[in-house]
Design a protein around this nucleic acid. Structure first.
Lengths: 273, 273
DNA sequence: CGAAGTTTTGAGGACCTTCAAAAGTTGTGG
DNA sequence: CCACAACTTTTGAAGGTCCTCAAAACTTCG
């Protein structure tokens, strides 16, 4: 039963990194548990000391942080098939919460088992590390989104990002995907008020860039929406993870291509203007 | 010579994770190269395919991303002693650039050597993974900073974050640290215009929260500044990394403390409001 | 059908940006 | 050592984006 529940995530990992048979076996034999949540439950509370990592089996969860005043900022969404909270595998206290936005089924694995598998099979360790790197890339994209894009661009960008996530998971059809979230929660992801988001969405609909029915979003004009958002799907790492044998030609301190080689320090020091 | 250059970073890693002797040896024997840069040079350009990771030996670098219109968003700063760009070790194309803000000396190590060391010594792999997790935590903090804090709070928060970084590295004295950056670049980190940042800084000085001379910052009233920022240093992970033997009592699917155990799914499905 | 939550509308105002230019600082070259 | 160029910081004014407060219309669920 454990093997059944985890094989789905193994497939997801192996889309990026092919694993050896024993590593695959070690992954599948980690003891897993299924848990179901209704909407708006915390899977991890801020300040918790979680002992288990999660895979989302179906549903939608978000990672969030709360400020003193109660303002919430959502920092990522995770849909069916995603690993969540590997971050807490090595860190003792959670600096953020994770909660559901609809009825959600998750599969949990003890951190101890994850770490043991990573220690025994370096290729698994590398796969987990890579997952963390992908998360970090998403956080960076979120950062630039909040820091340097206006509300229309920002909203368009998040919609395209979520669309890409759902499409990759095979959960989108005809540019339409189920995104069971309220405008209020979406505004917490976009760093603006629900009222302003509402007006932004209205204008996106009016311009025939998107349509919304119930809690699903349809991208009506992807070219225009992408242009508005300045969307670049590169950060989702479509090229996948680098293999160790990518290197075997030129390891050992040889000159890299992308790095300036010359010594550019010109005598002066620590410019203090 | 290689061993000399890397021992500084080993010490930094071991402040979080004690390593075994052979792992330490493996880390130190990675071939390293020293490179010097003047201010405002790209170490990694956006779109590069870097083949080496960096440690900052002295100076200041930032990770940034540029939008179509030329707007720049800085996503992190790295000071002497920091590992930079482990992120690119596994990812083929850099989705962001890294550049210097003053004369900066870096030590580079081939990704191939990093990955080999991680594969041979799982504890090293875990240390690198942990470093990535710390970076990700910083990105999340940056996210909430940009998304949900006003310009005064945001500025105060970044100053405190940088102060903590410099203090931890032993590079601060009397609440003062050298931060060789222009207001224009700082505004790129804070997601606002240099003009507005200038007025914010003036008001922070007027209120006797900070002082600035040349390119150094003094925290004049830490309590008030922290209160303004809502600063919580927890995300810097002062408790350090979890050890594998933290688990040895309760691995194998036992009930975790921080997770709701009961099945909360109540029959209904995928709430579509 | 009523209660609760969500979306939508309206008006006023705060925060932050944009544009323009002056004042101050740093580095270069005569 | 001074003068000039380049850059950075500071000041001022006007305007747009986005927020706050308030309430109505709509949807979903018990």
């Amino acid at each position: 039963m454990s093997k059944l529940t985890l094989s789905k995530y193994l497939a997801k990992i192996e889309r990026r990194v092919p694993l050896s048979l024993p590593a695959r076996e070690a992954f599948l034999s980690m003891p897993a548990e299924i848990q179901d949540f209704v909407a708006y439950r915390d899977i991890v509370k801020e300040g918790d000391r979680p002992h288990r990592a999660f895979f989302v089996d179906k549903g939608l969860v978000s990672r969030y942080q709360t400020l003193r005043g109660g303002e919430r900022q959502i920092m990522s969404f995770h849909i069916a098939g995603d690993l969540v909270d590997l971050h807490s595998a090595l860190v003792v206290i959670a600096d953020h919460g994770v909660r559901t936005h609809c009825a959600t089924r998750i599969v949990t694995v003890a951190h101890a088992d994850i770490l043991r598998a990573a220690a025994n099979y370096p290729e698994l360790g590398r796969a987990f590390w890579f997952d963390t790197l992908c998360d970090a890339a998403m956080f960076r994209e979120w950062t630039i989104n909040l820091g340097r894009r206006k509300s229309h661009e920002r909203t368009a960008h998040l919609i395209l990002e979520m669309a890409a996530l759902y499409e990759r998971a095979g959960l989108a059809e005809n540019d339409t995907f189920e995104f069971p979230i309220t405008q209020s929660d979406l505004s917490d992801a976009l760093g603006m008020t629900a009222i302003h988001l509402n007006r932004v969405l209205q204008s996106l609909r009016r311009d025939r860039l998107i349509r919304t029915h119930a809690r699903s979003i349809t991208i009506e004009n992807r070219a225009a929406l992408s242009a508005l958002a300045g969307f670049d799907p590169r950060y989702l790492h479509p090229e996948g993870m680098r293999q160790s044998n990518d290197f075997d030609g030129h390891s050992g301190g040889q000159a890299p291509g992308g790095i300036r080689q010359n010594n550019e320090l010109d005598g002066r020091f620590e410019r203090r203007v």
